[in-house]
Amino acid sequence: MIPFIWFTYLTIIIFSLGIVNILIKRDGINLVVGVELIVNAALINFISGSAYILNNNGAVYGLLVLITAVLETVMLLVLLLVYFDHYGSLDFSRIRNLRG
């Protein structure tokens, strides 16, 4: 039987690498990919917790996270499309309107 703490360590590593991906990449698609990595880390944590803590609350929450992640990705991609229409690029470093 797989120890539960292995899942916890795996999700911690995936979560941290997702944050690294968001921090070091500058284009919008890689931002979405980083968010997907973080969401999948949460998903593995929910579902492994549900499998090991003897009830299915985590599985239901995992399903909800799965559905909500799709909606969030669709909205991010539409915002990227609008951003691309406005700036002609997906490079986020071109956003200078909010600088003081």
């Binding site: 284009d27 919008g28 698609i29 979405v32 990919v33 990705t73 991609l77 990227l80 499309l81 691309f84 690029s89 997906l90």
Partner: peptide, 8 residues
């Protein structure tokens, strides 16, 4: 994401 990458 592939469709999104095709506009970049």
């Amino acid at each position: 994401l592939t469709l999104g990458a095709s506009i970049a």
